[in-house]
């Protein structure tokens, strides 16, 4: 490999990091020079210190939120794919149920969460919120994928008298996989959002211990540095989830799908 592409790659990775460093430095400078009190805007150094100091608390909150996110995501993945398979089997079922899936999707989850918290146990309600936000992209992408089968390949399967099940297993599911993975990638981030929204709604209603709850709680107590620290953790969690799903998708598709192929030049 020649030198230029390597230098390009390093530059590409270094650029966002440089922006981050400059931003942090500017932030610290503004806070120090103007003598802004920490309950208005804490400097990055203080946020870092808080992160370390409150680590046990924040870490357990992070785990709570991640567990909710994960449960919501798994439910969304299973529910979205299963529903798409059901719809592909029965046009009637699709006609009957799809409108409600859409209604659920377009109604803001922040408005649904308080209701769910009334009728469901808290942990279930929080997971349900994550599920509601996340399942629709999985459903709609999988439906699209299942219907994106090459017409001639479908003819080929008909020629060889493939059963419905065989056509699903050997043709429609593999053809749908890239779409499905695209949906899951969106669903990962969305279920984190759902979990956070529900935690905040639940937090104002009483108990809770997730990161979003910590943010709300710190807000009431004017513990601004902890708010920032928790927010930072949430963003990092979101980025990691996205990257993990992108990597999984890449590994599954790299042998054949255009989206995962390396550019040649």
């Amino acid at each position: 490999m020649s030198e230029a592409p390597i230098r390009g790659r390093i530059l590409r990775a270094a650029l966002p990091v440089a922006v981050l460093l400059v931003g942090i430095a500017a932030w610290q400078l503004v806070v120090s020079v103007n003598g802004i009190p920490s309950y208005v805007l804490p400097g990055p150094a203080l946020v870092a210190a808080t992160l370390i100091e409150d680590w046990p608390l924040l870490w357990s909150s992070l785990l709570t939120t991640l567990s909710t996110t994960f449960q919501g995501f798994v439910a969304a993945a299973i529910g979205g794919v299963a529903l798409a398979l059901l719809f592909s089997r029965s046009k009637w079922l699709e006609l009957a149920l799809l409108p409600y899936a859409i209604i659920l999707q377009v109604t803001p989850v922040i408005a649904i969460a308080p209701l769910l918290l009334i009728y469901l146990p808290q942990q279930t309600a929080v997971v349900a919120c994550a599920w509601i936000v996340a399942f629709f992209p999985v459903l709609s992408n999988t439906m699209l994928g299942l219907n994106s089968v090459d017409r001639n390949l479908a003819g080929l399967f008909a020629l060889y008298r493939a059963s419905r099940w065989q056509t699903l297993r050997y043709l429609r599911l593999p053809a749908a996989l890239p779409y499905m993975l695209g949906g899951l990638r969106i669903a990962g981030g969305l279920s984190l959002i759902g979990a956070v929204v529900a935690e905040i709604a639940a937090g104002s209603a009483g108990s809770g211990s997730g990161l979003a709850y910590r943010i709300a709680e710190s807000g009431y107590r004017l513990n601004i540095p902890r708010m920032f620290a928790a927010l930072l953790l949430l963003s990092v969690a979101g980025v990691v989830i996205y990257m993990a799903l992108a990597l999984a998708s890449h590994l599954l598709l790299r042998r054949w799908h255009e989206s995962a192929l390396r550019k040649e030049s």
């Binding site: 390949l153 003819g155 080929l156 020629l159 043709l171 042998r255």
Partner: peptide
């Protein structure tokens, strides 16, 4: 046996 106008292969296989 049928051969289509395009190769009609499964790209994932």
């Amino acid at each position: 046996g049928f051969v289509f106008q395009e190769p009609t292969l499964m790209p994932w296989a």
